[in-house]
Structures are given as C-alpha cells and as structure tokens.
Design a protein around this nucleic acid. Structure first.
Lengths: 204, 204, 204, 204
DNA sequence: CATTAATCGAGACGGTACGTCAGGTCTTCCA
DNA sequence: TGGAAGACCTGACGTACCGTCTCGATTAATG
C-alpha cells in the first residue's frame, strides 16, 4: 500500500475506495488471466479507475501484484490444537489452500522471479509476506516449548536462525509441491511432511 | 530441446550448431539482463541467428528459458562421501551453487510462475528438470539403505511417494532460502538443514 | 487527412502538429526512397513520432501516401492567359511539373495499383485528388465558353460526362507520357498535345 | 510439372514448361490476390515449382509480373473496319477489355510505380509492352493515310513523335478512365473519346 | 463562499518488444 | 546436375502494453 496524501494537505485527497477496488481487480485479473497476461490497463478498467490513478499509487505491475497477493496471506491463523504436530498440520493446510488459489500462484512466483534482480521488490516481498507470516513459526514454537514438545532456545540469535530455517523448509516444501511438482498438498501429504519435519527422515 | 528434422528427409536440415548457440546466448542474456528484460530478438542477435530460426524451434520465451536452464542442472552429481548426511550436504551445496547463479534464478521462477497457467510448460519443467534430478534422491536413498542408515522400503508406491516428498523438501527449502528469503544457502545453513531433515525438529 | 478529435471531448487531444510532420516526412521519404522502400517505421522516426501515432491516424501505407501526395496537387492553378489553348498549356505544364517530382511519381501509381483491389482506397484517391482537381476543367471550359471558344453545354449531364472525358484525356496523357513512356512532358510536347486535343488528329 | 524426357540427357527439358506454368500461376495469383498480396512463394507453389527455379529465371516480383502481364497485350489486333474512327474504336475497346481484367490492372500499375525508381524495370516495361504495342498506332496511321483520312508525314522524326503522342493519349486516357476514375471504358465512352481525338474538343 | 491545489477519468503520446510474414539465398538430398 | 524441399538471414509488418503526458472536470480543505 502506499496511498495517504503525502505531505501537503491541500487539494483533493486520494480516494480510499480506489485502493481497495484496484487490489480486488488485480486479484480478479490474476484469476482470469494469470500474471503474464494481466495488464495494468485492464486492471484499471476493471477497477473503474484511470491508469493514471493506478500509477500514482504503485510503481508497476510487480509492486501492485505483491500487495494484492500479500493480503491473501493475512488470513492465516495458527490453530491451537493441543499438539505441535497438529498445529503444524493445520497451518500448513491453510497455507496450501491459499497457494492453491490461482490469484496467489502465478503472481507470487512472478514477483519472486523479478525480485532476483530488483532489490526493492525483494524487500517488499520479504516485509509484506515472508516476515509478516514468520509470526506463525514463532508462536507455534513458543507454544510447543511451553508444552514441553520442544526444548527452549538458549541463544536468541540461534533461535532466529532456526525460525528462518523452519520457515524456509515449510514454505519451500509446500510451494515446491504445489507449483513445481504440480501435486496437491493434501492431508495425506501434509501428515507425511509433518512427520519428517518433526522426527526426521529415518522415521519415514 | 526440440530440433532434429522432424520426419521428412528433404530440404536443408536444421543447424545443430544453432541450438547450442541459442541456448548459450539465452543463458548469457539471463546473466546480463535477467528474465524480464531478456528479449528473443536480443537472444537471436547474440546467437548470430535470425529471430525466425528461434521461433521455428521454441514456442516462446518460457520454453526457451526452461531448456537453457535445465542444462545447468545436469552437472549435479551425488558425491559418495560415506555417510548419508555428508551425501545430502554435498548435493545440497551443489544445488545451492547452481541456484545462486544469476542465469538460473530468475529464469526458473518465471517459468514456474507461468507454468501455473500453462500445462504444457509445467510438464516441460517437470520432465526437463524435476524428474531428471530426482535420480539423486533415489540413488542417495539406496546408498543409505545399503549402509543401513535408512530402513528398506517395503512398498514401492510408498517409496515413490517418499522420494517425491524428500525432493520437494530439499529443493523447496533451498529455493525458498535462496530466492524468497534472499539468504545464501551456505555450509552452515546446509548443515542445519540436513540435521533437521535427518533427525527432525526436536534435534534443533 | 483524418485527425481532429472525433466526437468525445475528453482525453488528451490529438496533436495537430503531428499530422503535418507525418505528411511532410512521408514526402521526404518518398523523395529519398521511393514507394517500395518507404517504411512506416522510418516515416514515424523522421516525423519524430511513434509508430502507433501514425497507425492511429492512417490505416496503412497507401492511405498515408495518398494524403501526402494529394496536398501537392492543391497548388495547381488555372492561369488566365486569354485563350483556351494557352490556358490548357499552362495548367498541363504545371501538372507535368508536379508529376515530375519524385515524391509524386511512385506514390501515386502505387496507390492506383492498390486501389484496383481496395474500394475504400479508390474512393480516397478519387475524392482527394481526382474530383478535387476537376475544378480546373470546369473553370477552364466555362472561361472558354464565355470567350466563345467552345459552344455552351445544353445538357448538364452531358456536360459532366464531357468534363470527365477531358480530365481523363489530359491527366491520362500526361501520366502516361511521364511515367510509362518515361519522357518529359516539356513545352514542345505540351503544345503538340494541346493542338491535338483542341483540333483533333487530322491537324497533326 | 511432369514433362516426358525419359533419359534426361540434355539441358533443361522442363524449363519451357516451367516458364509457362510460372507465368500462368502469376496471372492466376494476380486475379485472386492482386499485386500487393501476391507472393513468390505462393506463385511457386501454384506452378508446382521450387522458389529456386523461379528466382533462377526472374530477378524479382516486378520483373515476373511484367512478363506475365505483357503476354496479355499480345492478343491486341488492329481490326480493318474501313475507317480510321472505327479502327480506333475497335482497338481501344480491345485495350479496355484487357485493362478490365484483374490480372492486368494492379500488376501493370505496380510495375509502373516501381519503374519510376528502377531504370532496368522501366526499360523492361517499355520494350515488353509499350514499344511492342506501338505497332498498332503505326499500322492504323498508315492505313488511314492510304485511305486519305490523314495527311502523309513528310518528316520521319516528326512522324515518330506524333506516334508517341497518340499512344500516350490513347493508352493514358483508357488507363485513367479505368483505373483512376474507376469507370468502365464502354462503347459510349470510346465513341466520345474517339470523336475528340479525331476532331478536337470543339466538336464535343 | 471563493480560492486553491491535488485529485479524477479519458485517452493520446513515445517507446519497446512482440510474433508473423515475405523476399531472396543457401544447403541437402533425390532422380 | 538440375530441381524440390525447406531452413536460413534480413527487415518490415501491424499490435499490444508500458509508463508518461495532457486535457477538462471534480472535490475537499483553506482563507
């Protein structure tokens, strides 16, 4: 997001409704067209807004799509199911459900692809999506620790590194399963994945 | 790849050298420009080839890039280091090294993004890259089983499912670490990752 | 010509300067390259205009060239030299001078060639060039009639037919002499032509 | 093309047949497509000939079309109708009939257009078509002179100039009427034209 | 309540790349 | 050894989308 009348206070203020309409139109266009066929002119038309209005708020296609997709992940919630493995299975299933939606799939990967060349975009992806959802790992781990399922972390730096690792393993596995292997991350798969994650390969 | 004079035997045959030149030029352009700024006209020029020659062999940018990138992964080899964890660390480091190369990064993710909408492209990604490298998992597991580090698989279907799971976990984690989190998959990270993969989260 | 914001009054209006620049660039390109080597991309570049601007106003090469060439003929004027034969000689010489210019020659014939297959184009040629210059025949005849050099026309329909015939004979002869026979329509030729036209073959 | 020549020994047994087939295919393509949409590849296909064969015999599209069209005019004949005006009317009607055929129209004018920039092509048009048909003027005039309808020419140079003038006037008028004005050169028009040509404008 | 200044929809603009097509040239194999 | 088949390079085509720029017309907040 990047509206809010910048500094000066005079003049007509930006329409708040336009932001929402544009993001919704972007998601709709992602569903119907996918990333590569989505055009900003079309998004503007769908949102009932002029292209100018769109460009006044977002720098380009990638930024807009990241914002439109990021909102989808905010509905993720860590269920309190009483055990670590059930917690993980629950959140992974939610994550998989979001990734299965067409408006998330292609937009997200395209943004990641472009972010390999565009530092500002990578930062935007990180702060809008990755860091924001890392909360789930932190919370799940602290619950598991208070339940005694996981040992406490003595070193905070080490704790952060481990959280990053877990996030990369969880998110990476689901994304790869869904988008690259093209298989559904269904309950059976999620159970197998969680078992390996918690108990290691030897358990498989 | 898709050259080789298809069926008829008449007429001038397709230049074998052109294929190689085009794929090399594609990788070079990926390094210099990244996916989004790469144009087929520019690739053709770099390869010393007419645009029409390029279009005669590949249907579009995505197909071309998948083929150009797929070749990179063929250099992966499973080291025989004597232990499963060392084998995994070795191959993951190799995989990370390839993914760190600019010609692999953005091209691969862009193809994955597009493949969410294009079944033929997803199939191409799967057969050219995913299935082809799954050999590493199969071979590593069978070695570990003969060493007694992993139990034998009684059910072949289950064995295949597990191989898929492992591949998704390994490839997914490295890709996510490298491209989404934007952090290097260095030796330290690979050691931590391998430990969790083999022994589970509780060991972390 | 076909600019002027059509009906709606919103949006940025079309640049009036662009029209003039494009037509001038077209004539310049005709001089330097001739019809067959003239490209719309080159014309756009010369005019300092994007190709899309050009295509927004003209449907294609033929239409553009007809408009560019038509302007040349607007400078034709019927001299009032006191006698019908002198009037004819004067205007035919002017016509020949225009046709001798390289920007008129090849463009005009190419448009005529294409117009044999394209009714809209033929209509454009007729209204932009032929009908517009037929005024010279009408005016010249009426002057000659008031001088008593030609009998008055009793029937208006017959008068129109005769005007058409005269125009075809004059324009056709000059065009054929200049472009097909490849000889200059100089003063001597114009005198001979005018004598035959006025007095018939027997006088030659 | 499938000519006999059993034990192909000498030069080019198919050559003659190929020439005719190519020219016929060219005319057929002109009828169906017109000049601008006619392609040499298509002509070769229609003629059952390889593009190579075609280019071995003609330098390009213009040359080929000139030759294909020139043949059409060879069927022109000067009728011996007993009077100059009837002779003229007869041959002009024949000429108009040829020009009305679609394979003549656009091909001829396109060649003329290009010949304004290409001296070799102009020469080819002149020798293949213009000079070849000028025979009709010479013969018609000499007949009229022997009938006493036209005075004899004392000066041969002047005679040649006059023949050129007449040819330009006749051919030019018919071409202009047919192609530019887009009106048929029918019997009525031909009568009017012939009267003006023979007796001058004042007679109209 | 008038002024002011930034907003809005609309759409033309300069660019750049697209994917296609035709013109001619060349290579290969066959008869 | 000529010819068909067809790949090749070149260069223009007409289109699409990008992101910018004018327009005239709205809107609040300010004065």
């Amino acid at each position: 997001m990047q509206s809010r009348t910048p500094a000066g206070r005079t003049g007509r203020p930006r329409s708040a409704a336009a932001d929402a309409a544009i993001l919704a139109a972007t998601r709709q266009a992602l569903v119907e067209l996918g990333w590569s066929r989505l055009t900003l002119g079309d998004v503007a038309t769908r949102a009932g807004v002029a292209k100018t209005t769109l460009y006044r708020r977002w720098a380009g296609k990638h930024e807009l799509v990241v914002d439109a997709v990021a909102e989808l992940f905010d509905e993720l919630e860590l269920p309190d199911s009483g055990s670590l493995s059930a917690d993980i299975e629950g959140v992974v299933l939610q994550f998989a459900a979001i990734l299965a939606r067409p408006e998330a799939k292609s937009g997200l990967m395209a943004a990641v692809a472009e972010s390999t060349r565009d530092d500002a975009l990578r930062e935007r992806v990180r702060t809008s999506i990755v860091e924001r959802q890392k909360r789930l790992v932190m919370e799940g781990r602290s619950r598991a620790q208070s339940r005694g399922e996981l040992p406490p972390e003595p070193d905070p730096a080490e704790a952060a590194r481990t959280a990053d690792l877990i996030f990369d393993m969880v998110a990476g596995a689901v994304v790869h399963r869904t988008l690259v292997s093209g298989q559904p991350a269904d309950e059976e798969w999620v159970r197998s994945f969680t078992r390996v994650l918690l108990q290691g390969l030897a358990s498989a």
